[in-house]
Each structure stands twice: as C-alpha cells, then as structure tokens.
Design a binder for these strands. Structure first.
Lengths: 136, 136
DNA sequence: TACTTGACTGAGAGCAACTCTCAAGGGGTA
DNA sequence: TACCCCTTGAGAGTTGCTCTCAGTCAAGTA
C-alpha cells in the first residue's frame, strides 16, 4: 500500500495531479484507511500507469474516463477498449514521427549556431566584424 | 505573401492559434496590407516553423517570446540562443524516450486485447463462458 | 500534557494556452 | 445594391492542471 506522496514519487506525477485525476474518476475506487487517507495498491498503480500513458499521448480526461468505465463494465466492452488502445497507439506513432521532424530542425539550428560561434571566435582577430546574425 | 488562412493550412496550425501567437509577440512584425490584413512572407513562415517546433516540445510561450526577442537583438545573443536550442533538443530526446516507453505499454495492451478477443471467439462454442475480463 | 511538526484532506482560486463566438468592416461578383 | 466570403479584435469559455489555504489527525518532543 502506498500513500499519495509515494505514488507521486514512484510514478513521477504530482500529488495535485493524482488528486485531480482521482476526483475526475480516472482511478476506480481507491481505498481509504480509517483516517480517510488514500491507500494505493499495486493494482491501483496499474491504473495510474495507463492513465499517465493515455494522457502523455494527449488523450483528454473525458476519454480516459470512458476507457476506465469500459474496463469496469467487463468483457462485453473488450472490442471498444481494443479500438481505443489501437487508435491511441497509432496516435503515439504519429507523434513519434512529428517529434523526429522537429528534432531534425533542432539539430539543424544547433549546428547552425555552432558554426556561427566558431566563426565569431575567429572574427575576434578580424577587424571586419559588423555582421548582424539576427536570423532565426 | 500568404494570408493567415493559407499559413494555417500550410503549417497545420489553426488560424485562432496563429492570431494568438501573433498577439503574444511570437512573430516579429508581420506586415499588414492597406486593409489591415496580415501578409505572411516566406521569412515569416520560418518563424511559424520554429515557434511550432518549440511549442511541440512543450516550451511555454513566454520562453518562446524570449528566444524570439533574442533573435531580434542580434549577434550578442547567439550564445544564449544556442543554449536554448541545445536544451530544447535534449528535452525533445527525452520526450522521444518517454514516448517509446509508452508505446511499449500500448503494444502490450493491444496484444493483450487481441489474445482476449481470439479466445473469446473460441469460447463462443464453449459452454463455460463466465470469465470477467475487466482487467485494465 | 501541551506543543510542534509533518502528512493528508477538500474546496476553490489562479493560470496557460488555446478555442470559440461575435459584431464590424472590407472587397468581389451578380 | 445585395450577397457572400474573408479577416479583424475583443472577449467569453474550456481544459487540465497548479497552487493556496484552512482543517484534521498522528507522532514526536519538552
């Protein structure tokens, strides 16, 4: 059993966010002890993990709640749940592609600035030094 | 020269968002025609591209504005700009790793549901069919 | 025993970054 | 002239946190 603080640390999600997710119904029935303190079980960590996963791919909380509710209903919802996961995976793959593209741009910029700095070092000994490199 | 609508289509960013970014000072001096309509140049598209890139990696608008302002100041800010790009690139690489991890989970779930569905198909001809697969 | 400290609670204010609606003001065509 | 489509800025609304705060409780300390 874990307190909310421990879960926050373990899963790298803030306590605030965990409470917010809990209040939004994204974790079903987290147990409380006699002092009303949440007690996350190993099984609950699984919920945190999947919620975090879906969020990180940009799924909104309402859709995550839908998925969670489907899980609670039982077998009859397996096809819909399968569809959600499949669609989410495709979304994640697309994000991967997008990220790769943006990384290329960042690589290019980084090299560009490196060249600029290298040349500026040389230019310190060069009387002609009025270049304005305010390109992006 | 492009209208905001054309830029929105070209860069896959909504007109609303472009106006919001423009108002936030994320594009320096977009020209207007005599009717006060924004006219994006090829050069302006470069700004849209880098802003989109920085946003997609989670840089907040304030920091993007800082970067844009540095670009406008000129050569003296090259080291700081270089630092920003380098840090952003590292952040992007970390996101890539995180995304890979989440993709593994999604792969696992997808296979899990596929197995479940396959077995359910078989179970249609099986009198013992009361399994409750409400696992996540 | 009284006090302090630290963790947890829910309610609710605040915030970033959109997202959407709307009224107003062109320009072009029939 | 009427109609249509586009653009504009202002501003309301939304999502998903993020933070503050007052209150509760248990354990440790003087």
């Amino acid at each position: 059993m874990y307190t909310i603080k421990e879960v926050a640390k373990l899963m790298d999600v803030s306590e605030h966010t965990l409470r917010f997710w809990a209040k939004s119904g994204l974790f079903p029935n987290i147990k409380r002890n006699e002092n009303n303190i949440r007690q996350f079980s190993e099984h609950d960590l699984g919920w945190v993990k999947i919620v975090k996963c879906l969020r990180s791919v940009g799924t909104d909380n309402k859709s995550i709640k839908r998925y969670v509710d489907l899980c609670l209903i039982g077998d009859s919802t397996i096809p819909e749940r399968y569809g959600i996961i499949k669609a989410t995976r495709i979304k994640a793959l697309q994000q991967m592609e997008e990220l790769k593209k943006q990384l290329e741009l960042l690589d290019y910029k980084e090299n560009y600035y490196e060249e600029l700095i290298k040349n500026n070092e040389i230019d310190k000994y060069n009387p002609v030094n009025d270049l304005q490199t305010n390109a992006v």
